[in-house]
Design a protein around this nucleic acid. Structure first.
Lengths: 239, 239
DNA sequence: CGCGGTGTTGAGACCTGTCAAGACGTGTGG
DNA sequence: CCACACGTCTTGACAGGTCTCAACACCGCG
């Protein structure tokens, strides 16, 4: 159930004896939410963190004028709000992009981990820092990459992350986002995302239909996006 | 010496007895670096984190084409790379924007804190999560705010953060950045930053000269920027 | 006094946004 | 089974914000 999360941790460091058990015991009840539901509302007190067991979620910030910026996509095995353990309330909403299965982990349990399992606590700290690294790469996209490179980069990132989670093939994966949601991720309009996708299709870099994407020329796509997976910290290391 | 950092922590939660001492003992030697120096280079192994005692630094990511994106400004009392404790290497450079004084904190010392001072460790975890919250707000700026609002928002953020650090007046502070660096923060060109600054001056919202800025109509500036300091998590809370 | 970096200005290009309309697809109710 | 409604995708014409390139002014400093 929490296996995708364990895999994510083990990709970065070996777990010590007992750590897997503690984590399994830390997990409380699970629940399902339908697509479009707001799972966590900004600025409301949070007493538990939530692990994503299946589906896609997004962290979204809105301006008064209604424009939305998605600051991160979360996938199977991600905590959607582990940072709420230290922050106690979030500066953004978390919304379900698809139907989702969620597992609760009470902050009290995480606190116990910080008291008694410091190595595991460091790994959970690491996980929140991985989110921040993704944030920084997205900033680079929004500040300095063209629309074409931005869209390409998003497809590249999601491929790698879904592969780690075991939810993607060599060069394809289920892609549930609408063009509106892609636009909200990239700081573009949906009209322009549409035209950009057409350009990527014309170049033979992206095949997208029926909520499924294939990236037939990954090398070229990565070159176009200047995608380097280093920022996802895929290496195992003592931490 | 590390007082600005202590103030930053105490603004979020009370310290327990002994925690201040541990922190003071954790700090190793200090050093000075001149402006423009690269303090930490991306992807090189890091064995210590660095506390900023004076000056301004930036986290910078570059594209091959040479375009730069600054993903965060760090100020007195900030760790410039606390996340390197879990990440072991950084996905970005850290550069000195001004002459800086730095203090080393060996990762070994932070590791000890996670082993023996879990509450303090949680506060240091919190500090890295504050960085991520700033990242998210900057993403909102770059994705959805106009150039005018972006520049305004940056001035608002720096005012609040410098006030917490005790380095700003009611409505003014020393502002050492060039327009090129501001552009790199906001995903704009320096030419456009220049024109945007003129517009802000014309509206009576920003007075900037001699590396010093005053914000005569803070309320209006914040309204224009849709600035809400909540994302800086200025509240004290048990953590 | 000259130099290099920074700030300023102008003209024009271009990328992306805006607005609007229609096509397409899917689920629902009659 | 059809009609309809709704969201999404697509397309076109046009607007506008931001960028590019270039030149010049300014200023601190050696």
């Amino acid at each position: 159930m929490i296996d995708a999360f364990l895999r994510k941790l083990r990709a970065r460091d070996d777990l010590l004896p007992g750590e897997e058990d503690v984590l399994r015991r830390a997990v409380g009840e699970t629940r399902r939410v339908p697509a479009h539901r707001t799972i966590i509302r900004a600025w409301e007190p949070v007493r538990q963190s939530t692990l994503l067991l299946s589906g896609w979620t997004a962290r979204a910030k809105d301006l008064e004028s209604g424009e939305r910026q998605i600051t991160e996509i979360n996938l199977v095995g991600d905590f959607i709000d582990l940072h709420s353990f230290t922050l106690k309330e979030l500066d953004h909403d978390v919304v379900a992009l698809t139907d989702c299965e969620l597992a609760c982990v009470p902050h009290e349990a995480i606190r116990e981990i910080t008291e008694k399992f410091p190595h595991l606590a460091r790994l959970m700290w690491l996980v929140t820092n991985l989110d921040a690294a993704i944030h920084r790469e997205w900033m680079l996209s929004m500040g300095r990459r063209s629309a074409l490179a931005r869209v390409a980069h998003l497809f590249c990132e999601l491929l790698v992350r879904l592969q780690v989670a075991g939810c993607a093939g060599e060069d394809d994966y289920a892609f549930p986002l609408t063009q509106i949601q892609v636009a909200d991720c990239l700081g573009l309009t949906s009209v322009h995302v549409n035209r950009t996708l057409q350009e990527l299709r014309k170049r033979g870099l992206v095949e997208l239909r029926n909520r499924h994407v294939r990236l037939p020329d990954l090398g070229e796509l990565q070159r176009l996006a200047q995608f380097d997976p280093g920022y996802l910290y895929p290496r195992k290391q003592a931490r």
